[in-house]
């Protein structure tokens, strides 16, 4: 299947988009992390901090799959630990509503797993999701990440506490499923059908 999005390093032209998304309370309502007003200067600093290579984290702009490569969201990893060969899947934000069809979201996961396991050679990629955020909570079973536990009332959002799931995908499982074709878009779509439950 053709690609819905591509990935590139952050650029100065992304600042306006980041400023808009970071101030969108609805967009931030179920993402791990605290929502707070974000000034334009904050956006400038944030984008500058994302640009380039860093020892412990990496951010990518998720872009339209055309010559313009306009930003539609971002994806990141953090806590890159070369000794323990692990990293935290920090999160995906799709800020452009026209890209809320799910394909950009799936492709972003595949891109990050490929980068972590095939480029960085890591052994474990872990992540957290707020319980009740259906997309994030479904990712584990969709990509064969194992749920490893629940942090109770670990996130205060929208005026109340939420539990947070912890899950991780190991290198050996990633390559086994990749070999089987389980990470092809068509195979992922099939797993989502209630006919296959």
């Amino acid at each position: 299947m053709k690609k819905r999005v591509t990935f590139r390093d952050f650029e100065e032209r992304d600042i306006d988009f980041i400023h808009k998304c970071k101030n969108d309370e609805k967009l931030n309502s179920m993402i791990v992390g605290r929502f707070k007003p974000f000034s334009y200067e904050d956006a400038v600093k944030w984008v500058q901090g994302c640009i380039g290579e860093h020892d412990t984290y990496k951010f990518w702009a998720i872009c339209t799959n055309d010559d313009e490569q306009r930003i539609v969201g971002w994806v990141s990893i953090s806590n890159i630990d070369k000794y323990n060969q692990s990293a935290c899947f920090h999160g995906i934000v799709i800020g452009d509503k026209d890209y809320h069809d799910g394909f950009a979201w799936i492709e972003s996961y595949l891109f990050v797993y490929q980068y972590c396991f095939e480029y960085l050679g890591l052994n474990r990629v872990y992540g957290e999701s707020v319980v009740g955020h259906k997309q994030s909570n479904t990712v584990g079973s969709l990509f064969f990440a194992e749920r490893e536990g629940t942090k109770r009332e670990a996130e205060f959002k929208n005026g109340r506490f939420y539990d947070v799931y912890m899950s991780a995908l190991l290198k050996r499982d990633y390559f086994m499923h990749k070999e089987r074709g389980d990470y092809e878009m068509r195979a992922i779509l099939k797993r989502l059908s209630p006919y296959n439950k």
């Binding site: 809320h100 799910g102 950009a104 979201w105 099939k190």
Partner: peptide
């Protein structure tokens, strides 16, 4: 986004 993929599949 998730339900859109479920609808298509």
């Amino acid at each position: 986004s998730l339900r859109n993929l479920v609808i298509l599949s």
